[in-house]
Design a protein around this nucleic acid. Structure first.
Length: 561
RNA sequence: UGGGGUAUCGCCAAGUGGUAAGGCACCUGGUUUUGGUCCAGGCAUUCGGGAGUUCGAAUCUUCCUACCCCAGCCA
């Protein structure tokens, strides 16, 4: 059986590259994925990763991993390590070594000096508040800084003094001299360098001035020979500035910036600030909490790299900003897991069943394929005994119409085993059902009973052989489609109080040897993944619910209500 | 009210002057020892709105409307 392939549709960026190649303009393709190491990567980054690495792959080019590390106060090595792990886990490998914008600090400094010499940059001593006033507003032009016309010599000396550590944080900045009345605010003499007496994770205490994003990104692209600098829409306004630097500096080449719409997913927040808040406030257990839309969270939840890649292929790449339905993600997930996950029977909410016409002590070792369509996955043994557990959901004392499961006097198929009939319901003093007494039809193993149709099939586990496991049932972290849509309502108000519930389940014995990150379909229930951090084979079993199976019975029930 | 963008089915998205692909979701049937998977079928006389050009427009022109981004010494 082959797995259905989801292939990337052509998009405007790929089309552009194809056209460039046909026109003989751009033979080589070099892209880059440029995260700032100030947080963990999330599903939105996955889209960018798949795009940048995917294009390089498709056109036989390279994709670099470059940390955009120009703000030492917010960045650290933990993020750098996590980001690399995430990219590789997703299935991509960058060309050459990991790169850092900070590798280019000296070159950037020299280029800043070049601009000063050309009379295109100056040291400004306006403080932050004054700077804001001078900048003007969206509708009013700004006005020139009183420091704008300093001499080249003075600017050179001042900039050198900035680098030398002569001034405290915030005292002065280096600005480009462009146009304070430009309708595009980014062109109103943007800041090139600011003073930050901070330790940098890569360059240590070598620098106390740090270049801004705008002064760093395009030039870094040029240094690396990037041909296509792909970024999200909010940087579109920066493109004139990106090009201004490339046009005014002796750079080795001129990369071209192209923007696409970032991913929005309903029931999800994808803002680093908000994700960090969830972590810092202890609302989730960390960046890799299985409820987080971070790549590491999704990994721990049980997503496969392929499911994420498929999802990115499905949603496409455009310039129109929409909101993708999370069901698309779930589809890509289930689609991959359906094919790759081994099957197992696990009872989440056990109720005891006694097979009255089965001798105590008798054990029948039944077997079942680990996957209905993949012999290569082997089979497992399912011991059948007099006492079993089934799920409480699979029994109803007063079943509604179309309920195919177990009910008094009604028959049901035990998956991979016999058909049983419920003869008696045992309750405790409070009226709660504690046991079902059933009889099995010994002539129904591997074949249908004669003369009657048994439609329902339920899963079960031997009470004697079943093994306990902690099962974590995850659901959406937010209960509304757009948690951060309303600026006046804190997005935390929309947290789903039932995003996690923990149950003690009983598993079929084969699960005892599951390794961390092994993925299973608990038949009729959903897909589960042995927890990467806490699951211990043979001793402490911990499974995370990745996503439930589609449940058409639930739909029927809803309609009946 | 300045600048930059975007508008095609509930959602994503092809389409670039020749008469609306596909996927998700949803709905019908069929198969099935998972109410899963799979299979078959259905699901935009219409492309944000108006006017115009044309034999012919989602695609061209024009006017309008809605929404998104920008006033960090963040990226």
């Amino acid at each position: 059986m082959s797995q259905p392939e989801i292939t990337a549709a052509p998009n405007f960026i790929r089309n552009m590259i194809v056209q460039q190649r046909e026109a003989g303009q751009q033979q080589k393709v070099v892209t880059r994925f440029p995260p700032e190491p100030n947080g963990f990567l999330h599903v939105g980054h996955a889209k960018s990763i798949c795009l940048n690495f995917g294009i390089a792959q498709e056109f036989g080019g390279d994709c670099h991993l470059r940390f955009d590390d120009t703000n030492p106060e917010k960045e650290n090595q933990t993020y750098i390590d996590a980001i690399q792990e995430d990219v590789q886990w997703l299935g991509f490998q960058w060309a050459g070594k990991v790169r850092y914008a900070s590798d280019y600090f000296e070159q950037l400094y020299q280029w800043a000096v070049h601009l000063i010499r050309e009379g295109k940059a100056y040291v400004c001593e306006l403080n932050a508040e004054q700077m804001r006033e001078y900048r003007g507003t969206l509708t009013e032009p700004g006005k020139n800084s009183p420091f704008r016309e300093r001499s080249v010599e003075e600017n050179l000396a001042e900039f050198e003094a900035m680098r030398a550590g002569t001034y405290p944080d915030g005292a002065k900045v280096l600005r480009a001299k462009i146009d304070m009345s430009a309708p595009n605010i980014n062109l109103r003499d943007p800041i090139l360098y600011r003073i930050r007496h901070a330790h940098h994770h890569q360059t240590g205490n070598q620098w106390c001035i740090y270049p801004s994003y705008d002064f760093t990104h395009g030039q870094s692209d040029a240094i690396e020979g990037i041909t296509h600098s792909i970024c999200t829409l909010e940087f579109e306004d920066h493109r004139p500035l990106y090009e201004w630097f490339l046009n005014n500096l002796p750079v080795p080449c001129k990369p071209v910036q192209t923007e696409f719409a970032r991913l929005n997913l309903n029931y999800t927040v994808t803002s680093k600030r908000k994700l960090k808040l969830l972590v810092d406030e202890g609302i989730v257990e960390g960046w890799d909490d299985p409820r987080m839309p971070t790549i590491s969270g999704m990994r721990r939840r049980g997503y496969t790299p392929k499911s994420l890649r498929d999802f990115c292929d499905m949603i496409g790449v455009t310039r129109s900003g929409g909101v993708v339905d999370i069901n698309m993600l779930y589809f890509a997930l289930r689609n991959d897991l359906e094919h790759s996950a081994r099957r197992a029977m696990v009872v989440l909410n056990p109720i005891k069943v006694v097979i009255t016409n089965w001798e105590a002590g008798r054990v029948e070792n039944l077997t079942s394929p680990s996957h209905p369509a993949r012999e290569d996955l082997g089979e497992r043994t399912l011991p059948f005994t007099r006492e079993l557990y089934i799920d409480r959901d699979d029994f109803m004392e007063e079943p509604p119409k179309k309920y195919f499961r177990l009910a008094p006097g009604q028959e049901v198929r035990l998956r991979n085993a016999w058909v049983i009939r419920c003869d008696e319901v045992i309750k405790d003093a409070s009226g709660e059902i504690i046991e079902l007494r059933c009889s099995h039809d010994p002539d129904t193993l591997g074949k249908n009973p004669e003369g009657r149709k048994v439609k329902g099939v339920i899963h079960w586990v031997s009470a004697e052989h079943g093994i306990p496991a902690e099962v974590r049932l995850y659901d959406n972290l937010f209960q509304v489609e757009a948690p951060d849509a309303d600026k006046d309502v804190d997005f935390l108000q929309h947290l789903n109080p039932e995003s996690l519930s923990v149950v003690q389940a009983v598993c079929e014995p084969s699960l005892a040897s599951a390794e961390p990150e092994d993925k299973f379909q608990f038949e009729r229930v959903g897909y589960f993944c042995a927890d990467r951090r806490e699951h211990q084979p043979g001793s402490k079993l911990v499974f995370n619910r990745t996503v439930g199976l589609k449940d058409s019975w639930a739909k029927i029930q809803q309609k009946q209500d």
